[in-house]
Simulated assay, not measured.
Amino acid sequence: MLLLTTSACSGMSEKTNSSPGDTANSTTATITYQSENGPIEVPANPQRVVVLSSFAGNVMALHVNLVGVDSWSKMNPRFQSGLKDAEEISDESLEKIIELEPDLIIGLSTAKNIDKLKEIAPTVTYTYGKVDYLTQHLEIGKLLKKEKEAQAWIDDFKRRAQKAGEDIRAKIGPDATVSVIEEFNKQMYVYGDNWGRGTEVLYQEMKLNMPEKVRETAQKNGYYALSIEVLPEFAGDYLIVSKNPDTENSFLETNTYKNIPAVRNGRVYEANAKEFYFNDPLTLDYQLDFFVKHFLGG
């Protein structure tokens, strides 16, 4: 369930590997990427990237070809067209990854078999939460030698999100609160400001208010598990419900939920959890449009 964010401060140098008999087509340019684990030599123009978790949307947004991705990315409805030719893999499907002949592997620092993956292709891992979600995208831009494109998107996104936040606060009031909730594996969660589900957009960029109870419990770890009985204590004036269409979401039928003021007042906005998990540029743009549409009717 980890969702994204992390990395390094990257200065890069570029060189070309070739032998006397090489032609221009067989010459392979590389760059040295300063990862959080030290310098790693990676392709300057990777053509066959494998992403083990969280970062598929970042790579797709920078128009780099993916040949293998994690199951969470593969099941995202908004990624399906872009990933139709990518294989579903994991950090344990080493033989399948070898068959894909990747020239770069990207994953989280918690991935299994990292040493074995490094034998297949240059492998760069990131620690979730080490840097903020926008810096994370910039880091991936540096890794893929697309730093300028990444920075341009970041600048534009911040401008659009902050303007939307001003408009929404003007409409709902400067003191209105918003909660993000989700039922996952029959457990209810509320989220802080850095665990996907639109939380980065709502709280970090739009500057909407988090209920104090959520701030006290969910902000440190990014999420907090609770029972349906106490959900009203964590519910803001507005509720964003990250709803997995494949699960029962039985809490929606309880009297406890139905009697929450935000529910009674029609201030609940339901999102497809499969489209809302991540915080990559493709997902963030979708989340921003979702909030503008539901809060402002745009």
Rank of each mutant, 00 (worst) to 15 (best):
T6P: 00
T6W: 02
A8Q: 13
C9R: 09
G11R: 05
G11T: 15
M12L: 01
S13I: 06
K15V: 06
T16L: 10
N17R: 05
S19I: 14
A24E: 06
T28W: 00
A29E: 15
Y33M: 14
Q34K: 15
S35N: 11
G38K: 08
V42E: 05
V42T: 11
P43A: 09
P43K: 13
A44I: 12
Q47G: 12
V51F: 10
V51G: 04
S53I: 10
F55Q: 11
F55E: 11
A56Q: 08
A56I: 11
A61L: 02
V67G: 04
V67M: 07
G68C: 06
K74N: 09
P77F: 08
F79S: 05
Q80M: 15
A86Q: 07
E92W: 14
L94C: 01
L94T: 08
I97A: 04
I98Y: 14
E99S: 15
L100T: 11
L100Y: 12
E101I: 05
I106F: 06
L108G: 13
I120F: 06
A121N: 03
V124A: 01
Y126T: 03
G129M: 05
V131H: 06
D132V: 03
T135I: 09
Q136S: 15
H137E: 13
G141E: 03
L143A: 03
L143M: 01
K146Q: 11
E147G: 01
E147I: 03
K148H: 13
A150W: 07
Q151K: 14
W153S: 07
F157D: 13
R160L: 14
R160F: 12
R169V: 09
A170P: 00
I172N: 05
G173F: 12
P174S: 15
D175F: 09
S179D: 10
S179T: 15
I181L: 10
F184H: 13
V190D: 02
V190F: 08
G192D: 12
D193A: 09
T199I: 13
E200F: 12
E200G: 12
E200R: 04
V201K: 07
M210G: 00
R215F: 10
E216I: 01
Q219A: 05
K220V: 04
K220I: 02
G222W: 04
Y224P: 01
Y224I: 02
L226R: 06
L226P: 09
S227T: 14
P232D: 08
F234N: 04
Y238W: 10
V241T: 07
V241R: 06
K243L: 07
N244W: 04
N244I: 03
N244P: 00
S250E: 10
S250K: 09
F251Y: 14
L252M: 09
T256Y: 05
N265C: 01
N265A: 11
N265E: 15
Y269A: 01
Y269D: 03
E270L: 07
N272S: 09
N272P: 12
F276P: 04
F278Q: 11
P281N: 08
T283V: 11
T283W: 05
Q287S: 03
L288M: 09
F291E: 03
H294S: 00
L296T: 00
